[in-house]
Amino acid sequence: MEKFTTLSAIAAALPEANIDTDKIIPARFLKTTQRTGLGQHAFDAMRYREDGSENPDFVLNRDPWRKAEILITFDNLGCGSSREHAPWALLDFGIRCVIAPSFADIFFNNCFKNGILPISLPRDVCERLMDDASMGENARLTVDLARQVVIRPDGEEVAFEMDPFRKHLLLEGLDDIGQTLQHEQGITRYENRENQEKSWMPSIHID
């Protein structure tokens, strides 16, 4: 997984609440067997017209936001399905950081697993960042994960909260399976105890 340390980038505003994962990546694009290549279908229904051409009004179809690496929305971003294709599509498009007043739980977790930083900030702050974003190239936002601040174009710093463990994994780009397997002895101890206490637990075998 790619490390996330600091990001200085163009931000795009999608001033909507409840942007669900079907909107981020419709189910018909989930038949891929890989994690990459979904960026072209990100926000498909908003991004393309019925004839397949780009919708020129959609922010991610306009310069400079085509190159946006930060996305700012309103509440409950990523609600709906657990599809990890949502962060994969965002990442493949180039988004490394999402900012919203709140996130749906599963999407929030999935972002961390893919090196996307989700930042939760109050709605009025998001609105101000959206104003910055509307200025495009001249108004890059900088996200400094180590210091936990978003730096606005005028230099103002907005602090955000972050779980220390997740921060550590992002900063180091660590694979969390490897992390967990460091505790293998503990897992085995637990399993042995469970097997004794609940020997009735089924084993599934299908011929």
Binding site: E84, P87, I106, N109, K113, D163, D176, L181, I187
Partner: peptide, 20 residues
């Protein structure tokens, strides 16, 4: 509960999942 694909991989490899 539902989990993402990376978490599925984590569970398959470790039979555990990190939760708050």
């Amino acid at each position: 509960f539902g989990i993402g694909t990376s978490e599925v991989e984590h569970v398959m490899a470790t039979q555990t999942i990190l939760q708050r």
